Simulated scan of single mutants.
Amino acid sequence: MYDLKNHRVFLRRTKYEELRKEDLYVGNKINVFSRLLHIVDYGDQFTARKVGSKKEKTLAMIKPDAVAKLGSIIEAILDTGFIITKAKMVLLSRKEAMDFYSEHQSKSFFSDLIGFMTSGPIVALEVIGDDAVASWRKLLGPTNSCTARSESPGSIRARFGSDGTKNAAHGSDSIASAARELEFFFPSSGGRGPKNTARFTDCTCCIIKPHAVSEGLTGKILNEILSAGFDITAMQMFTMEKANAEEFYEIYKGVVAEYNEMVAELCSGPCVALEICQTDAPQRLREFCGPADPLFNFPRVQLFLFTRNTEIARHLRPKTLRAHLGKTKVKNAVHCTDLPDDAVLEGMGEIGKAGEDSVSLQASSISI
């Protein structure tokens, strides 16, 4: 690997078992030996052919009528073999919606479309896969959900849409459109795109950890959260740098034996940050994620030790999220806020600060 910033070789040929071939695509951020790297290009044509193959990026947008089915749609996307590399819940302004759908401005349905697309939050996703543009549109099904139910009953629009406008999701119709639409939601020029939907009031923070994202559990976790009656009012995918992870877990440094492992896990790959709203959200989410009562009255660190122990969760609260999706005390599927006072501090605005280094990737530099 060659470090473009410092103009030197950063890593020669070595074995790194935590890295998968599927992770090696332009635009991805990977963590190698505690260093966050941004893959900006392939080192040569041979690598591009072997690693890049037919990889394309496209926009998958979940419309207001289907946000309540967010988990099921993401499960369908992941089950098809796509990789989700960016995600953001936003509420479009009228101007933003009109700009996005400007090609339909002369159509009779334009006004209804704009009204619908600004009626509630949407979720924009960048998905990567072989022939992603065509593959995603095939998974979507026909534009009209009624037609989709007869012609493609297993498609997204057949399962979750209701008509030609409220049809659950959108997909770019060409590689050029995909590039333009992804730039709209995820600007590469340093802009922020449409504003996220975070409220930062009467809420709590939940982070789907990197191991769970990597294992394809994002959709399942979202489904369980929504099925339990929680509202997901904001969502964003990001990759955390080690320094940010250390700051995030600072309260446990020198107190919890697994502190270094926790930091390493949190910055090992993409996370999904969620803002969760419900009455008494911090306590209720803790109870949902793992053992809380009767341990809720323990001091903060003792509470942390118990609620994050997956084995204890399996014995005391076998139906909790961590009990059946967590693996270990560190890889326990999700982080949730310990105390109500921390809910806003751990909100999406505080945790989405990730740094990166840029590298050029060569196949000869990595043994997979």
Rank of each mutant, 00 (worst) to 15 (best):
Y2T: 09
D3H: 05
R12M: 01
K15C: 10
Y16G: 07
E18K: 10
E18C: 10
G27N: 06
D41E: 15
D41Y: 01
V51Q: 14
K54R: 14
K55S: 10
D65N: 06
D65H: 10
V67Y: 01
A68Q: 07
K69M: 06
S72Q: 08
T80F: 13
G81T: 01
I83C: 09
K86E: 15
A87F: 14
L91D: 07
L92P: 03
K95E: 15
M98W: 02
E103N: 09
Q105T: 04
S111R: 10
S111N: 15
I114Y: 06
S119N: 05
I122Y: 07
I122A: 12
G129V: 07
V133P: 04
A134R: 13
S135A: 14
G141L: 05
E151P: 08
I156N: 00
R159D: 09
F160Q: 02
A168L: 01
H170M: 02
F185L: 10
F186C: 02
G190F: 03
T197F: 03
A198N: 10
D202F: 07
I208R: 00
E215D: 15
N223G: 07
A234C: 15
M235N: 12
M240G: 03
A245D: 00
G254W: 09
V255H: 07
E258L: 11
E258M: 05
Y259N: 00
N260A: 11
N260G: 06
P270N: 00
L274Y: 04
E275T: 08
Q278A: 14
A281F: 04
R284H: 15
R284I: 14
A292E: 14
D293L: 14
F296Y: 11
Q302T: 13
F306V: 15
T307N: 12
E311I: 10
A313Y: 11
L316Q: 06
T320M: 13
T328C: 08
A333K: 11
T337E: 11
D342P: 01
M348E: 14
I351L: 07
G352I: 08
Q362W: 15
S364V: 13
